[in-house]
Simulated scan of single mutants.
Amino acid sequence: MGVVAVFVGILSWYALGSLQGLGVNLVIAFFVALALEPAVVWLVRHGWRRGAAAGVALLGSIIVIAVVLALFGNLFVQQLIQLVSNLPDVYATIQEWVEGQFGVVVPDSDDLIRQALEQWGDDVASGALAVGAGIVGGLFAASVILLVAYYLLAAGPKFRASICRWLTPNRQEEVLRMWEITQVKVSDFINTRIVLAALSTTFTFVFLLIMGTPYALPLAVFTGVVSQFVPTIGTYIGGALPVVVALAAQGIGYGLAVTAFIVGYQQVENLIFSPKVSARALEMNPAVSFVAVLAFGAVFGPLGAFLALPIAATIQAIGNTYMRRHELIDSHMLRDPDSHHEGHEGHEGHDRKKPGEPHDAPAG
């Protein structure tokens, strides 16, 4: 029996390691279904069958994402081609300036390209094969996520009922309550991101239009969508493309102006827009949010990083629901001190009011 237990343990450990990718895809599919559940419920209330409503909601979201990627992917590729085509001229200008100022012989760009191909040609080939395999794996994972999400959306209440049949009535109530909390947090997160993306798009479009930057509307939409829906680095990616376009089409002055606007608007969004728009959502410490994004991104990949905030908010909401909270004691460690003058007067007044203390007692 001991030998059998060891082999069963080894097999279970190996199976869990092999199924890790599938488990991640199932978790992502579950949260995708939660995010699309309000749209499906709205369609069902207007007379749609549950399966058709689930298919339309899922297919509609895929079409919207595909259109956005097609529009901005094309713009990004065009700008990238333009930048790459201008690199030889930029390099030649830098080469002439360095040779004229310092008398240093800088190799030609053709020599650098030839040397790079000789040194890293094999690495580039193997990297291309790895990228191809990654694309195939990503398509398979996306298919699994979409299929499972569709089944969860199409089942809806039936799926929840099948789970609750294995639980006692008290446990059923707790599971359904946690399910509802998770649903609310995911919906609040998605709605918040959409509103903030719309605000960012509007203000960026007006600024780029005033500056006369080409492709103002697609650049503004790209900035708004990427800055809100790409975790952690979305702000930098979303702001980089309009800066590059301004640099390439209008010059360094316009590029710096667009950079200053992106940085300034980010501060306005963090201090004004985001707190007001997220008033219904659960407030979370910024450091906790940042660590949650990094942790879920390291474990579950980019989609895990995107879902980190609603998952963390759900965990915090469940903890607030089921964990007992106590009143705080009176301690100076739980509040910021007053200003120096007010604090001094407060101490003096407090000292004068101490019972049984002589009037000429020194201040504490």
Score class of each variant (00 low, 15 high):
S331L: 10
V230I: 14
L176C: 10
W13H: 13
E345Y: 00
Y150T: 01
A54K: 08
V24A: 14
A246V: 06
S339V: 04
V244F: 13
P38Y: 06
F222M: 04
A246T: 01
P157A: 15
N25I: 03
A281G: 05
G134V: 00
G121C: 09
A15Y: 04
V77R: 10
H332G: 07
V131L: 15
A128D: 07
V258M: 08
Q20Y: 15
A287D: 03
A149G: 00
A249H: 14
A279L: 13
F290W: 06
Y150G: 06
A130Q: 10
G156T: 04
L167F: 11
L328P: 00
I237M: 11
H350W: 09
A317Y: 06
L199A: 14
L58N: 00
L208H: 03
L112E: 01
Y265T: 02
M1E: 15
A130G: 05
A53R: 02
G17I: 07
I145G: 02
F207L: 01
V67Q: 01
F203V: 15
I237G: 03
H46K: 13
G156D: 10
P88F: 09
M284D: 09
A240E: 05
I63A: 15
E37M: 09
G349K: 08
L139R: 01
F229C: 06
A313K: 11
A257T: 15
Y14C: 08
P218E: 10
G251Q: 10
Q78L: 11
A92Y: 06
W166F: 14
G47Q: 06
S143T: 14
V230R: 02
A57W: 08
V64E: 05
A257C: 06
G156W: 04
P337F: 12
V293A: 08
E118C: 12
Y265A: 14
E342A: 09
L34F: 02
P355F: 07
V56Y: 01
V77G: 01
G346C: 01
I233W: 01
G60D: 13
D108K: 12
I233H: 04
E96H: 15
G364D: 13
G264M: 02
F290Y: 07
G301W: 12
N170A: 15
I237T: 01
G364V: 04
V144H: 06
S18D: 06
I135D: 13
R335F: 11
K185Q: 14
T223D: 00
